[in-house]
Design a protein around this nucleic acid. Structure first.
Lengths: 337, 337
DNA sequence: GACGTTCATCGAACCGGTTCGACCTTGGAG
DNA sequence: CTCCAAGGTCGAACCGGTTCGATGAACGTC
């Protein structure tokens, strides 16, 4: 069941079938109908590999995800799903490639084997070797998060610095004087993970601007670490009355630590940060926080990538998202004792 | 930079380059070295589309995931990541296709366009139209979960009936007389979702066998629903002293409901079920539960699929996993008042 | 009635690999 | 010395599409 067979049964040449399907040259209505009848009868679909070879494009996008060992967070998951859907809207499929550790065989295969027309790179580091690899191959790509030299590349990111800064300002307005930033894991921070770097910068700078005492700590991406981390914070800096975080996975542990310490939120302690709406709503009480709009980022990333694929000489564009901070119930005025 | 260019620079024919690379025919050591030098110098990688066309196989597996609208659960996510890694071990890539409704463009493209050599189907219904579609195309596939007529197909599943049955028996041994099953969402159950069906069957059957009073309820896959659901259970059946669940996403809500009702676990109430280890450990107190071994299932599914791809006439095989129930701290003897 | 257009279609080349059959060397056995 | 097998290489066909240039028929124009 290939195009030749369809042509034979419809009594036309292979090229006519091709033109009837693509509409790139006029074909008489009668012929089109005859061809369509045959196709419907045989349930024919063109072979994707052959088409890709002939056209020089695969209609497939690559999505580079962190390796399975690094447990994917909830937000990352919904990001993957959204990328797939956004790609489907452009009639493209998504090929997954885990990378980060040394699973770079897969990355190689996907990137250099011309298996995809473009790549979306998640979990970018400030200096990322994969970015250089991609740049040198000339394959269009968009990063989630941006590298230091960001002007010349395509990316989508959340303005962590700005958002965290606004969180701190919010806490300052409420009278808090000692605050802490609960960052992501040690390793991530050590490797120069962009969001962590920028969150820290925005945090320290703004806190200093308001004359606050600011501490920042790393915390692994799981509830147990969140609990331990929060108890350590209480022990080391008992005067801290508010926390800002970008570590969503640690939240359940923080919740438990607050409960265990019999701290009422927001009466005794305020908590805010950059947290996906869904998780912020699930907290008790719901968190005042800026959303991580994974769906919107995925959509944007795919749109940018398609733009780049369709016009490789286009000048790089990017998007820095700064979703509003939604006021919920987890921040309140500092109680003076 | 194609095979012809390599051949020209190495002073041999295209076929010799091909044989040197694949090793399917002997090539002299000197020639191989000359070819490899040229390849290394030019950074050549064979074009995947051309190879797929010629070989008739794409070295790509399709993974059909639930659409983004249905939020993917934590377990599903780690399953996806594990599938990608298992496939990478076989030198295969993974193409994602969201699907749920049955006139799915993406599913069509992947399945009928010969874009993949085989398919893994997640979130299977007891009667699933996609299974029929796949069967009729003759494309190898493995389902996660099994359809009613399961003998003739390839699948991997968790023995929900058996595991839930063992949970109930455990509760019976501890003296509980009124138990409830917290199932997944209404819609899923209504559509004939296999795990839900089998969990219910195992639950009711075993409870009856021990002369227990058994109730079962549906609960949407999110914390808020878990909270509402549990409070409703307490209101309707105040005598219930233990719950069994397969709904991992609802657990945080159940946790909050227990706390709000000032029920101590396991003194006042026992909780168990089929819950991924990671989530069971995060509960407070840690849950006595059977693991959902997503990684192992992914590995098995990929292995079975590869087996089927390499020998299409092989007789269908399947695996019904029954991980042990890990005793933690959430189940205890019923207190007699 | 000769002529230039437009429309519909065809044949052939091409994309970049794999694979088959054929050919030419060598070298060892008889 | 002849013959045959094995080793190494080549050219051509093929996988299933797309695309370009050419061809022929129908049509309106002068």
């Amino acid at each position: 069941m290939n195009i030749g067979e369809i042509a034979r049964r419809a009594g036309v040449s292979r090229s006519t079938v091709s033109y009837a399907l693509s509409g790139k040259r006029p074909v008489s209505a009668a012929t089109v109908r005859r061809i369509n009848d045959v196709i419907a009868e045989l349930g024919y679909r063109p072979n994707a590999s052959a088409r890709a070879l002939a056209e020089g494009r695969t209609r497939t996008l690559g999505l580079v995800i962190p390796p399975a060992s690094t447990r994917l967070t909830d937000v990352q998951l919904s990001f993957v799903a959204s990328v797939v859907e956004a790609a489907a809207a452009h009639d493209h499929d998504v090929l997954l490639s885990p990378s980060g550790g040394d699973h770079d065989r897969s990355f190689d295969r996907v990137v250099t084997g011309r298996r995809v027309d473009g790549v979306i790179l998640m979990e970018i580091l400030l200096h990322d070797p994969r970015v250089e690899r991609l740049t040198s191959t000339g394959l269009p790509f968009v990063t989630i998060g941006h590298v230091v030299d960001s002007a010349a590349s395509w990316w989508v990111d959340v303005d962590y610095a700005g958002l965290i800064s606004r969180c701190v300002r919010h806490l300052a307005d409420l009278g808090h004087e000692q605050v802490v930033l609960i960052n992501r894991s040690d390793e991530l921070v050590a490797s120069g993970y962009g969001p962590s770097m920028r969150a820290t910068a925005g945090f320290l700078e703004t806190a200093e601007g308001f004359g606050m005492t600011a501490h920042d700590v790393c915390c692994a991406d799981d509830p147990a670490a969140g609990l331990a981390c929060f108890e350590q914070i209480r022990a080391r800096w008992p005067e801290v009355t508010a926390a800002v975080t970008i570590n969503e996975a640690a939240l359940p542990g923080v919740q438990r630590a607050l409960h265990r310490a019999e701290l009422d939120v927001p009466r005794d302690f305020s908590l805010t940060g950059v947290i996906a709406d869904r998780l912020a709503d699930d907290f008790h009480p719901p968190l005042t926080a800026a959303d991580v709009p994974a769906g919107q980022m995925a959509q944007l990333a795919v749109d940018l990538l398609m733009e780049q694929i369709n016009d490789p000489s286009a000048t790089p564009r990017h998007a820095l998202l700064a979703p509003p901070i939604t006021l919920r119930s987890s921040t309140g005025a500092r109680r003076r004792n």
